[in-house]
Deep mutational scan, measured.
Amino acid sequence: KELVLVLYDYQEKSPREVTVKKGDILTLLNSTNKDWWKVEVDDSQGFIPAAYLKKL
C-alpha cells in the first residue's frame, strides 16, 4: 500500500472529506483524480485536496 504525508492541516468541509493534521502519515487509496485523493484515516475513508499531500 502507498503512504502519503500530510503537508498542511485540513478541516473537512463535506461528509465525503476527512480532517487531517500536518505531519500525519496516511494510507493512499486512490490518486487517479489529480485534485482530490482518497485516503484512509483511522477507520474512515475520505477525500483530501492532493495539494495537501506528498507521496512517500
Rank of each mutant, 00 (worst) to 15 (best):
S44I: 15
N33C: 10
T19F: 06
Y10H: 03
D24Y: 07
V18Y: 07
V20K: 01
V18P: 02
Y10K: 01
P15R: 07
S44R: 15
G46N: 06
A50V: 07
K1N: 10
W37V: 02
K34W: 06
L7H: 01
L7G: 00
D35C: 14
L26V: 11
E2L: 11
N30E: 14
V39M: 01
N30P: 03
L28C: 08
K54D: 07
K54S: 09
V39D: 00
K54G: 05
L56I: 13
K54P: 02
K38M: 15
K54N: 05
P15C: 09
K55D: 04
I48Q: 01
D35W: 15
L28R: 00
S31H: 08
G46Y: 15
N30K: 06
E17C: 08
D43E: 11
D42V: 09
V6K: 00
L7K: 05
L7S: 02
K54R: 12
V4D: 01
K55R: 12
T19H: 07
N33T: 06
K1E: 10
T27E: 07
I48W: 02
G23T: 01
E2W: 11
E40H: 06
K21V: 07
L5R: 06
K21W: 09
P15K: 10
E40T: 07
I25L: 06
W36L: 05
I48E: 01
A50Y: 03
E12M: 15
S31N: 08
S14K: 07
G46A: 15
L5V: 11
T32L: 08
D9E: 05
S31L: 04
K38A: 09
E2M: 13
Y8C: 15
D24N: 08
K22N: 04
S31M: 08
K38W: 13
P15G: 11
V20W: 05
Y10D: 01
W37S: 01
L53F: 02
N30S: 12
T32P: 04
A50N: 03
A50P: 07
V20D: 00
Y10P: 00
S31D: 14
P15Y: 08
N33R: 08
K54Y: 11
V39G: 00
Y52A: 10
I25K: 05
R16T: 11
Q45N: 09
L56Q: 05
V41K: 15
P15A: 12
P15S: 11
I48S: 02
L53G: 05
L5M: 10
D9T: 05
L28P: 00
V41F: 12
P49A: 03
V39T: 00
L53R: 00
K55G: 04
K21L: 06
V20L: 05
K55V: 11
D42L: 12
K38E: 15
D42G: 15
E17V: 06
N33A: 07
K34G: 09
V20T: 04
T19S: 14
N33M: 08
F47Y: 14
E17F: 08
V4M: 02
D42Q: 13
D42T: 08
S14E: 09
G46R: 10
K1F: 12
E17T: 09
R16L: 13
R16S: 12
A50F: 03
P49I: 04
P15L: 08
Y52W: 06
S44Y: 14
P49H: 04
V20F: 06
S31C: 14
P49G: 02
V4G: 03
K34Y: 07
S14I: 06
